[in-house]
Amino acid sequence: MVILQLIINAFSLGSFYALVALGFALIFGVTHAFNLAHGELILLGGYLAYTLAGQMQVPFLGTLPVTALAMVIIAILLQKLLRRVGQPYELNTLVVTFGLALVLQNTMLMLFSADYRIIQSAAPAIELPYTQLLLTRTQVILIGTSLLATTALYILLRKTFLGKALRATIQDREAAKLAGINVRRMSLVGFAIGGALIGLAGPLYARTTYLYPSGGTEASLIAIIITIFAGVGRIRGILLGGWALGIAESTTVYALGTGWRELVSALVLISLLLLKPQGILSRKPKAARLPG
C-alpha cells in the first residue's frame, strides 16, 4: 500500500516537473533560445495568480487562463528582445537571459518583497475507495493539467498544419526555411505557446511549492534538465522524463534518505544521457546543439 502511495506521489511530482519544463522545451525547440529567465517567468505567473486569488478571490482554476494570457504577452515581448541577439544565438541568449533573470529577480524582490507566498488549497484529500490511498486536490490538478497540456500540444504539433510547420522548424531550421516556412513567424508562435504553458505552470508552482523572488533558478534548472532528458522537441518525452525523475527521487528518498536525492537524480540523468543520448523516446539521431 505504501508503495502504491509512493507511486502516486511520484507521478504527481513528475507531472509538476513536466509542467515546469513544457514552456522551456517548446521555446528551446522552436527557436533555440536558451531561456534562463524561464523560472522567473513562472514565478511572475505565480505572483499574478497569488494576487488574483488573494485580492480578488478568483478561484484557483479561474486564475489559469488569466496568467496564461498575461504570460503570452510577456513571452512575445521576450521574443522581440531576443530577436535582436546576435550569433552565436544559443550562447548569447543564455547570457542575455541570465542578465534578464537577475533583473527580474530583483524587480520582483522590490515589487513583492522577499516574503514567501503560497496559494493554499483548503480542500481535503480524496481517499480512494477500498484502499487507504490518498489523492490530494493539488495532485489531481497537477496530473490532470500535465496530461491535458501534453495531449493538446501533441495534437497541435501532429495534427494541424501549424504544428507541421513548427515541427519542421524544430527538426531543421534551414530546411524549413527552404520549404517556405516563415521561421521568424514560427519563432513568434513558439514563444506565444511557450508563454501560455509558462502561464499555466505559474499558479501550479505557487500551489505546489512556494513563491519567493529568487526561487526561479530551481525552476529553470528543472526545466533544462527535463528538456534535454526528454530530447529536444519531444513533447511526450517531457512527461515521461518528468515522471522518471519523480520516481527516481521519491524512491531514493524512501529507500536511502533525503540527503541522497540529488545524487541519484544526477546519476539517472547522466546514465540516460550516455545510454540514450537523443532522449528517452529516441529512434533517430537528431538533437539541438548548444553551440560552439
Binding site: N9, S250, Y254
Partner: peptide
C-alpha cells in the same frame, strides 16, 4: 536525516514517517 533546503517535495519522507 538531512535534506537540502528548498526541496519541492517531502511526500516520500512523510511516508517513511508514517511507516
Amino acid at each position: 536525516e538531512k535534506f537540502r533546503p528548498g526541496s519541492p517535495d517531502f511526500s516520500a519522507f512523510l511516508l517513511k514517517i508514517r511507516r
